[in-house]
């Protein structure tokens, strides 16, 4: 399937039998999932189960040994593929925010559209200010990351990704490093994003949040998807003993 054949009736992200090993350590042992445009997917599971690795394979930060990942019909791990073109379509937010410490919040948001997409500065600035307003950080445009709280930095990081106008957003345990009181504001931002129709793939430990926003939940353990389903059925009637045990520990 090539880029031109893809229509939004087909999965926007399609993961098929993906295997990934670090040396002899096999982290993903045949993972498959299909994500439709506008869907919100939550991946949950115990630490070390390969959740973050999977999400990092989607924008080629990690490579894979076997299987295939396509985004809008384009194979991500095709060696001929221009990774930069792929990453323009896929935004990513990290656990540790990873803002550029030498740039203000506004500059962090403006940098990639100006330098990578070569868009005119004044146009980008208007959009960047709107995005900062959208993540409720009006007035913090000129603050440096070091002057912002974790939750504020994470919302700048979300705005920074959105500035590239991606088709898919990846969230890698974005609230795991935050204080409990700032978790809410970040989750609210993601919820609004999902409501706007953004395709979101989240790795998260926030079960309540997953249940509320997700269209589909995947539970991974030891490199495989153990169980998946819409949140109602997943949380009410999990069948696999591993899922039950995990949910029992966390809920």
């Amino acid at each position: 399937m090539s880029d031109q054949d893809w229509t939004d009736q087909q999965p926007i992200v399609s993961i098929k039998d993906v295997h990934k090993a670090f040396g002899t350590l096999e982290v993903l042992k045949g993972v498959s999932m299909d994500i439709m445009k506008g869907e919100v997917i939550c991946i949950i599971g115990p630490s070390g189960s390969g959740k973050s690795t999977l999400i990092r394979c989607i924008n080629a930060l990690n490579d894979i040994q076997a299987g295939s990942i396509t985004i809008e019909g384009q194979e991500v791990h095709d060696t001929k593929l221009d990774k930069l073109e792929l990453r323009k379509k896929v935004g990513m937010v990290f656990q540790q925010y990873n803002l550029f410490p030498h740039k203000t919040a506004l500059e962090n948001v403006m940098m990639a559209p100006i330098k990578v997409l070569k868009q005119p500065r004044d146009e980008v600035e208007v959009r960047a200010r709107a995005l900062i307003k959208k993540v409720r950080l009006e007035g913090k445009e000129d603050s440096y990351p070091g002057e912002l709280s974790g939750g504020q930095q994470q919302r700048v990081a979300i705005a920074r990704s959105l500035a590239m106008d991606p088709d898919v957003m990846l969230f890698d345990e974005v609230t795991a490093a935050l204080d409990p009181e700032t978790v809410k504001e970040v989750l609210l931002t993601i919820k609004e994003l999902a409501a706007d129709g953004m395709t979101c793939i989240l790795v998260t430990h926030e079960m309540g949040f997953a249940r509320e926003v997700a269209d589909h939940i995947y539970f991974t353990d030891r490199g495989v998807i153990v169980e998946h389903g819409p949140p109602e059925t997943f949380f009410e009637s999990a069948s696999d003993p591993r899922t039950k045990e995990f949910l029992g520990q966390i809920l």
Binding site: L61, L84, F94, F100, K115
Partner: peptide, 18 residues
């Protein structure tokens, strides 16, 4: 400089040189 800075920039489609 932490390698996470590289990853964050890579995910924003910056080239290595940039």
């Amino acid at each position: 400089v932490p390698s996470a800075q590289w990853e964050a920039a890579e995910s924003l489609a910056f080239s290595k040189r940039q």
